[in-house]
Design a protein around this nucleic acid. Structure first.
Lengths: 129, 129
DNA sequence: GAATATAGGTCTCATTTAGAGACTCATATG
DNA sequence: CATATGAGTCTCTAAATGAGACCTATATTC
């Protein structure tokens, strides 16, 4: 496992990528940041409209919701469909790419939930020293 | 899959967590943010010292390196060992918890690499419209 | 018919967070 | 004596976020 990691990092460096700004990181930035993660989890349940997402994520601002949706749309991870009703309605849903990513996200979330007791214990040890 | 996601999100909401600030998110913040990801990938190769990490990640600042290492140490994801040489040397390495997390991280990176051509194509379509 | 609501945003301003880089302290080297 | 290293800390500036006012068009309520 460590070898896989080692090889990959070395490859990137050989290709002249700064670790902090390589293509892979630009994708992860859009996909694993705070709001994108929550948006993808919501859209993993069902397609949703803009204001529906706003209500589902009560502490996101319109600004960040718009921005995160645009990034994910641009990367082809979700689809944006405008219906010409009055007023027009806009629906967001996962694309095939997004569906393919969701399992990895859920695995991460699962890990975090499982590891939580250990993490809480570790924090307590750290804080009381 | 979508059902798993649905259940989880609903559980969190039932427990009164704001999606943007639940315990799981606090862990993901420490573990999936830009610098922590790169630090974990480096430490997945081998244990490293502070300045060694600085050199391996040329575009991180000392400030962010210190901060990211502290968070990961506090969460029990990595171990910090001080050796009483002169000058004292400090070695960072993955804990068992960190080792358990690494595969998920590598899976994410793998996905990003595999998906990259599609993503690049999607961006081109988006930008030329 | 005026007031208010909804959808899907954009714009501005204040607060947070991150980045650059100077400085510390003790020892070692030329 | 000047300079370097290891492992940070501190300060100052720049960039990213969050809060919330505002916009356009239709529909609903009084």
């Amino acid at each position: 496992m460590a070898q896989v990691s080692a090889r990959k990092l070395q490859d990137w460096k050989d290709q002249g990528f700064e670790p902090g700004n390589c293509p892979v990181r630009q994708v992860l930035d859009h996909v694993s940041a705070k709001w994108p993660v929550l948006i993808l989890l919501e859209l993993g349940r069902k397609p949703m409209r803009f204001n529906e997402l706003l209500r589902a994520l009560p502490d996101i601002s319109k600004r960040m919701l718009t921005q995160s949706l645009r990034n994910l749309e641009r990367d082809g991870i979700l689809r944006r469909e405008v219906f010409d009703t009055k007023p027009p309605s806009v629906t967001y849903s996962l694309s095939a790419l997004g569906e393919g990513f969701l399992p990895h996200l859920l695995a991460l979330v699962d890990w975090a939930e499982t590891a939580m007791p250990e993490i809480v214990a570790a924090r307590q040890r750290f804080d009381t020293v």
